[in-house]
């Protein structure tokens, strides 16, 4: 290889590294500055401190937000997984005119700006007497994470070999048993993975959520945002790091399951 192409290669690698740094820097900064000893998020030089995590654990309001986030995420993940899986099975296993176009409907929550979704839902829930707070949050997040479960389970089903089911039926098993012993075990990792992704989506959701909360039922992202508006303290970092940890761990587990 000539020296010219080597130089080009090095320059290119350099540029790519910068782009990567651009992409990953924000999160790295949030994590690093959470260990600062000062009252403003700065990068700790020599002194590391867990002070802000400790303060976090003593703050009732913040702990409550974590609890709310967990409950809402779990609830909406379960609902979303059920409905998303049912829809995925329905779409993959049947044919009808305009199926491709109609399946886009399942992706609407992804496409429509979350602000509009939030406003529309809060008004609607008011009309159908669904209380704000937990019920509104869980319902709202179910709708928002539905497309993710749908896509995941659908792609798994598309590669599923239906001959396995046919073999099971020929051998004498009825549909329910076939599902329990053949389809289920093969497809369930994808369903579980979908549920995990729904959890992650819910846990980090902000824009629509701000319309669905009630005064004493707030989620972590909303709390973080509110704190951002008032003033930057490392407590926000600590809370953010916890949020990051939960979301990354659950997402990684989902990835494991899906592959």
């Amino acid at each position: 290889m000539s020296t010219k192409t080597r130089l080009e290669g090095v320059k290119f690698q350099g540029v790519v590294t910068i782009v990567f740094a651009f992409l990953l820097l924000p999160v790295i900064i949030v994590v690093l500055t959470s260990f600062t000893t000062q009252t403003f998020p700065t990068i700790p030089r020599e002194d590391f401190s867990f002070e802000w995590y400790v303060r976090l654990l003593q703050d009732e309001k913040l702990l409550r937000a974590l609890t709310v986030s967990f409950i809402v995420a779990t609830g909406s993940a379960i609902l979303s997984a059920i409905i998303g899986t049912i829809a995925a099975i329905g779409f993959v296993r049947s044919t009808f005119p305009y199926k491709q176009q109609i399946s886009t409907v399942m992706l609407l929550p992804m496409i429509i700006s979350p602000v509009i979704t939030g406003i529309a839902l809060v008004r609607y829930f008011g009309k159908i007497q669904l209380p704000s707070g937990y019920p509104a949050l869980i319902m709202g997040h179910t709708i928002l994470s539905l497309p993710y479960v749908f896509l995941l389970v659908r792609s798994e089903l598309l590669t599923f070999d239906e001959d396995l089911e046919r073999a099971s039926r020929v051998l004498g098993a009825d549909p329910a048993t076939t599902f329990r012993h053949v389809t289920g075990p093969i497809v369930s990792p994808a369903i579980l993975a979908g549920g995990f992704i729904a959890f992650v989506v819910s846990f980090g959701e902000f824009t629509a959520t701000q319309f669905l909360i009630s005064p004493d039922t707030s989620t972590v992202p909303v709390v973080i945002y509110t704190m951002l508006r008032t003033g930057l303290t490392p407590t926000i970092n600590a809370l953010s790091v916890i949020l990051i940890t939960v979301m990354v761990v659950v997402a990684l587990s989902s990835r494991r399951l899906a592959s």
């Binding site: 999160v27 902000f206 951002l228």
Partner: peptide, 13 residues
């Protein structure tokens, strides 16, 4: 996998 609000926070910082 990281909430938008946190990523924007990082850029803000």
């Amino acid at each position: 996998w990281i909430a938008y609000v946190i990523r924007y926070f990082g850029i803000l910082l």
